[in-house]
Write a protein that binds this DNA or RNA. Structure first.
Lengths: 140, 140
DNA sequence: GGTTAAATATGATAAATATCATATTTAAAG
DNA sequence: CTTTAAATATGATATTTATCATATTTAACC
């Protein structure tokens, strides 16, 4: 439902959101240990998120990752777009050329509608909002 | 959201359900032409569906595919299981070890719930039910 | 300024998915 | 019993996704 990379990214970002600040940076090792995502793999994902202006990173001793203030307003669908490009979740669930309310595909009104709700719910969830829950989930 | 293969399979099965009978079989070429799925690829998928007792096939001239009577009662989730194995859509949306109503993951109550609805809707839709719609969609 | 602890860049390998090609089997029909 | 129109089996190739490894850059601190 979510790609492996996207699920990994979300877990890592939840961890960072809950535990980091500009002065208290989180290292790759800590992220990898607490999400059980292999270090080189999560590294690649986090680099993309830095380029996507979600996270900030600092090299060198005492370096690490932390959330940008604006990053906290980013929602889960935007993360998907950053990691997988914007076209992944567009259009019809059967990928038909023509599919709309006027000429719906056979799944448009049932599964298709729930798919739309799914995308909307990804869009509604920001990391700021996830922060409002109690801290420290197990993320593995 | 659905794998390529699964979307292809559903399109082909809708076409077959709407146009076939035990005496009026549908050929690979016709299926490929009306769904725009490459012939060798849809062939492999249909073979799996024959092995999965959804379709019946007949070789030789005038041969082709048609729906088994029981096949019409099969739902979309079962098709997913036949093509991709049963574990694809199980457990937590973040693939966490522990995730349940008692100890929910951060997405359990929002995205996770919609994911559950999604799976349930796949489960509710049988090909018999899809047949109740008007015939002849464009399936490409 | 040398050491060290961190991210970064790059690319190699592996596994899963998707796609294509070809030879074989089967059954109908003359 | 030969031809022919179909599915079937098998496997080759390509693409995407996931995973791993290694060398480089950066900044802090002594």
């Amino acid at each position: 439902m979510l790609s492996n990379s996207l699920a990994y990214a979300i877990k890592a970002l939840i961890y960072i959101a809950q535990n980091s600040s500009e002065t208290e940076r989180i290292t790759l090792k800590e992220i990898s240990d607490s999400t059980l995502v292999p270090r080189p793999y999560i590294a690649k994902i986090l680099q993309a998120l830095v380029r996507g202006n979600v996270l900030q990173s600092v090299k060198g001793p005492n370096g690490g990752f932390y959330f940008r203030e604006e990053g906290l307003e980013i929602n889960l669908l935007q993360i998907a777009h950053i990691l997988e490009g914007p076209d992944k979740y567009s259009n019809c669930i059967l990928s038909l050329k023509e599919c709309s309310a006027e000429s719906p595909c056979p799944l448009h009104s049932n599964v298709g509608q729930i798919r739309t709700m799914f995308l909307e719910s990804l869009e509604q969830i920001t990391f700021r909002r996830l922060l409002q829950h109690e801290k420290s989930f197990d993320l593995f």
